[in-house]
Design a binder for these strands. Structure first.
Length: 306
RNA sequence: GGAGGGGUGGGAGAGUGGCUAAUUCCAGCAGACUGUAAAUCUGCCCGCUUCGGCGUACGGUGGUUCGAAUCCACCCCCCUCCA
């Protein structure tokens, strides 16, 4: 039995989900989420998760399976994805991974370096240390045990903290761990594609989609998440759209301002995604639309399933 | 017709004699990216550029000054109020 695996990447609102559904219908596939925020159960509308109708047409995996209070990671996702794909193959179906998180695709295609999980107390210590001594001193401290981290931009708080945490948690410099590449999770995908709509069309789609989200109850969803009073530095709390609407609930600005900001941040986010795929996924074939992507993938995958 | 306010780079909006091609914000563009990645960070953004510079610029035209977006005169346009 063939173990078909297909990857669909692209910026937000480019039609990835639609392409995945079309393809799944044609070749008898199941869909696996490769998007960092669609994993959270608190974000349904706001992360543009496939609608129930879509989920009825084909099995979906790794959507909304994580509680918002959890700090998920690329590593956890890639392990879960490996299991999901193996499962689908066991059932004789094609696995279609789709999402907009470039790092996640890298994690399965080339693998992440082996790194131990960081205990919560070390995480907290890192953040506390950073606040206590300031960015400059913190950077010096990191460089003292991992000089290679000099390549980090001085203002890059997040990566400095990561380097600090890893060293404290396992005693080895992060740069050293990174030199030992991990193993790919998906060896040779049968087909892959980046959906890259024209910029103006993509921006228009983003604006239109946000209106739809509001109409579908995005505000109530934001309210529910807001009411959980989770730590603001959790990934769910930073979701584009959710963050702005919650800022409105907090009284930081009006609903109109929140909506404008959400749209703006979505556009910026899409631009960053395009930059990633353009430069980090150079060898992937391109498609200008969901339909085009589905067709190309159908041909490329050999259409042996069913 | 009279009184006042104002015209600054794609937009908003600082600047009131040199430190200013002109703070800042927005919009836009380009880039980095190994476990928070919808995150985090960097650069460009008047034209040309071998990236050191060069050339034009703050409604228009003249003028004052060693030097003007900044001061003066006239002209054009916009807004508010009084007729």
């Amino acid at each position: 039995m063939r173990k078909t695996t297909i990857l669909i990447a692209g910026p937000t609102a480019s039609g990835k989900s639609a392409a995945a559904l079309m393809l799944a219908a044609k070749i008898g596939g199941e869909i696996v989420n490769a998007d960092a925020l669609q994993v959270y159960k608190d974000l349904n509308i706001l992360s543009a998760r496939p609608a129930a109708t879509g989920e009825a047409q084909a099995a979906h995996h790794l959507y909304g399976h994580v509680d918002g209070a959890v700090r998920y990671s690329a590593g956890e996702w890639s392990r879960a994805a490996a299991l999901a794909v193996a499962d689908i193959h066991r059932r004789g179906k094609a696995a279609i991974l789709t999402g907009g998180t470039g790092l996640y695709f890298r994690a399965i295609e080339t693998g992440l370096s082996e790194a131990p999980p960081i205990p919560d107390d070390v995480r907290a210590a890192a953040a506390a240390r950073f606040e206590a001594i300031g960015a400059d001193a913190f950077r010096k401290e990191v460089l003292s045990f991992d000089p290679a981290m000099a390549r980090l931009a001085p203002a890059d708080r997040q990566r400095h903290i990561r380097a600090w945490e890893v060293f404290k948690a396992c005693g080895a410099p992060l740069s050293e761990l990174q030199q030992r590449p991990g193993a790919p999770i998906i060896e040779n995908p049968d087909a892959r594609v980046v959906i890259e709509p024209p910029r103006t069309a993509l921006y228009a789609a983003i604006d239109a989609r946000f209106d739809r989200m509001i109409a579908e109850g995005a505000l109530a969803e934001a309210q529910r998440l807001f009411d959980r009073r989770l730590s603001p530095d959790l990934p769910v709390m930073k979701a584009v759209g959710a963050a702005e609407l919650m800022a409105n609930l907090r009284g930081a600005f009006s609903l109109e301002e929140a909506i404008d900001l959400a749209r703006q941040n979505s556009r910026r986010f899409a631009k960053r995604q395009l930059t990633w795929f353009r430069n980090q996924a150079r060898l992937w074939p391109r498609a200008g639309s969901a339909a085009q992507a589905a067709d190309a993938l159908f041909v490329a995958s050999g259409a042996l399933q069913r």
